[in-house]
Amino acid sequence: QPLTASMLAAVPPQEQKQMLGERLFPLIQDMHPSLAGKITGMLLEMDNSELLHMLESTESLRSKVDEAVAVLKAHQAKVPSTNVG
């Protein structure tokens, strides 16, 4: 059953993000299995209307995921942490 704006409107904001995340996560996991949780977390900061659009359009999702991965990698490069490899 596809997620719709009216379904989202019926629940509190926090729950809206949860519902969107549950739908987005498996799609993102297909593209980037190891980063899916982080990427989903980043995308959930966007507007719900954008997130709904991404659920409808794989192309849109893919481009946003690509952007998120680039931002994430740049961020990880700046933060000193355990660097393997």
Binding site: P13, Q14, K17, Q18, E22, P26, K38, T40, G41, E45
Partner: peptide, 26 residues
């Protein structure tokens, strides 16, 4: 204070209540 934000972004875990909204700084 320590200005690094190493835990960003908040990680979404399926089945776990999302609390990312609480972490958003204005």
């Amino acid at each position: 204070s320590n200005g690094t934000n190493a835990s960003w972004p908040p990680e979404f875990c399926p089945g776990v209540p999302w609390k990312g909204l609480q972490n958003i700084d204005p």
